[in-house]
Amino acid sequence: MDYKYINQLVERYWRCETTLEEEAILKAFFSQERIPADLQRYKALFCYEQQAAKDDVLGEEFDKKILAMTAEPTKVKARTITMTQRLKPLFKAAAVVAIMLTLGNAAQVPFNEDSYPTAGTVKTHEGGASVALRDSATIDSLQHSSVEMVASPQSGLLK
Results as ranks from 00 to 15, higher is better:
Leu20Thr: 07
Ser31Ile: 01
Lys65Glu: 13
Ala98Thr: 12
Asn105Gly: 10
Cys47Asn: 08
Asp56Val: 03
Gln32Gly: 04
Glu17Leu: 14
Gln40Leu: 15
Glu49Cys: 02
Ala37Ile: 12
Ala52Trp: 06
Arg79Thr: 12
Ala28Gln: 07
Thr74His: 07
Asp56Met: 10
Ala44Asp: 09
Leu58Arg: 15
Phe30Ala: 01
Pro89Leu: 08
Tyr48Gln: 06
Leu87Arg: 11
Cys47Tyr: 01
Ala93Leu: 15
Leu58Val: 13
Tyr42Phe: 15
Asp55Tyr: 12
Lys27Leu: 02
Glu23Ala: 02
Ile99Glu: 02
Lys54Asn: 06
Ala107Ile: 09
Thr84Val: 14
Lys88Thr: 14
Glu23Phe: 01
Ala98Gln: 03
Met69Leu: 11
Leu39Val: 03
Phe46Val: 04
Phe46Ser: 02
Lys64Trp: 13
Gly104Arg: 00
Lys77Pro: 00
Lys54His: 09
Ile66Lys: 11
Ser31Glu: 06
Leu26Thr: 01
Thr102Arg: 01
Glu61His: 10
Phe91Gln: 12
Val76Asp: 08
Lys65Trp: 10
Ile81Arg: 04
Ala93Thr: 12
Ala28Cys: 04
Cys47Leu: 03
Glu72Val: 12
Tyr48His: 07
Val57Ile: 14
Ala98Pro: 03
Ala53Phe: 03
Ile35Thr: 09
Met100Ile: 14
Glu60Gln: 13
Ala28Phe: 05
Asp56Ile: 06
Met83Arg: 09
Phe29Trp: 03
Gln85Trp: 02
Thr70Glu: 13
Gln85Leu: 04
Leu90Arg: 05
Thr74Ser: 12
Asp56Glu: 09
Ala98Cys: 11
Met69Trp: 07
Thr102Ser: 11
Lys88Cys: 09
Arg34Gln: 14
Cys47Trp: 00
Phe62Trp: 15
Met100Phe: 09
Thr74Tyr: 07
Gln50Arg: 11
Glu61Arg: 09
Asp63Trp: 15
Val57Arg: 10
Leu90Val: 14
Thr74Glu: 14
Lys27Met: 07
Arg34Asp: 13
Glu23Arg: 10
Ala98Glu: 05
Leu103Ala: 14
Glu33Asn: 11
Ala78Cys: 03
Gly59Ser: 15
Cys47Ile: 06
Thr18Ile: 06
Ala68Leu: 12
Leu87His: 09
